[in-house]
């Protein structure tokens, strides 16, 4: 009974997957996108970039949720955060995840950068991905800076004020930058509105396409520094895939109607590393 239901479910999922693959090629793309050969030794350090991506995704999701209750006005910003933390269902959890994943994000980005730096992952042909990564780092710092003020408590307020005063030392544009951020020549309602707009729309809208570009460049060149090691391993992978394909053809099966294991081609683990 259970076995039959399972095989029916497998058939259905195979049908859906094949249908999608046939029309959009999405499965092949996903496989190309998700599977990456990495050296066996120290494979875990290659997960740091994914960890950054995961934490940023958490930021987006919890940030959207927080927006349902947060109010960016000087008379109610602190009140609304207080409401989230004390009255809203799971408010502590949602804001806690936003707060802690932001903190961890800074640490994980540092580790990710260190890993890329010490493994030489920034060398040709990956220089541009390093550049994009640095821009992403600056955007995340901007997000952390602007998010701090939104709580509108003493801690966040003074940290932002001191941060802006540090910025005022910039040559030539220091004053104008401060006036742009403050929304005038003093901290007030305009400052909170501006930081809110920058934190919630401007920087997330800038960071999202750059993450896409970062991932595209990553997939184009692979994750790690040593070119020969990479090509060798990739050649090996293609060789095994080819041999498997041959052996299947020799057994007389149509490779596109290969359903021996009832999981379909896309479900088999043989073709993957």
């Amino acid at each position: 009974m259970i076995g039959r239901a399972r095989s029916q479910a497998a058939d259905a999922s195979k049908f859906v997957v094949d249908w999608m693959e046939h029309r959009t090629g999405v499965v092949t793309h996903m496989e190309h996108f998700l599977y990456e050969p990495v050296p066996k030794r120290g494979a875990w350090v290659y997960t740091l970039g994914s960890a950054c991506l995961f934490l940023i995704a958490l930021q987006f999701l919890t940030g959207i949720l927080l927006l349902f209750y947060y109010v960016p006005t000087t008379d109610h910003a602190w009140d609304s955060v207080y409401y989230i933390m004390n009255d809203a269902y799971f408010g502590v959890l949602i804001r806690g995840i936003h707060y802690w994943s932001a903190n961890f994000l800074m640490a994980v980005i540092g580790m990710h950068m260190a890993q890329v730096f010490f493994s030489g992952g920034y060398k040709a042909p990956r220089e541009l991905n390093w550049v994009v990564g640095v821009v992403l780092l600056l955007l995340v710092i901007g997000l952390a800076f602007t998010g701090y003020l939104l709580r509108w408590d003493q801690d966040g307020f003074w940290a932002s004020v001191v941060g802006m005063k540090i910025g005022s030392y910039s040559p030539f544009i220091g004053g104008a930058t401060i006036h742009f951020l403050l929304g005038g020549d003093t901290v007030g309602p305009a400052t909170l509105s501006r930081f809110f707009a920058i934190h919630v729309w401007l920087l997330p809208a800038a960071i999202a396409p750059l993450i896409g570009l970062h991932l595209y460049l990553l997939r184009r060149h692979g994750v790690f520094g040593s070119e020969s090691e990479y090509t060798e391993r990739l050649a090996k992978l293609h060789e095994t895939q080819r041999l498997e394909e041959y052996s299947r053809l020799e057994m007389g099966d149509d490779p596109y109607d290969d359903d021996d294991d009832r999981y379909g081609d896309n479900g088999s683990r043989n073709g993957r590393e």
Binding site: A176, H179, F180, L182, G184, D185, T186, G188, A190
Partner: peptide, 17 residues
């Protein structure tokens, strides 16, 4: 629209205070 505080403060010399 976005730079109006900069224009008011730095070019026109106005103050919010």
């Amino acid at each position: 629209f976005v730079l109006s505080p900069v224009i008011k403060t730095d070019l026109l010399g106005e103050s919010d205070i």
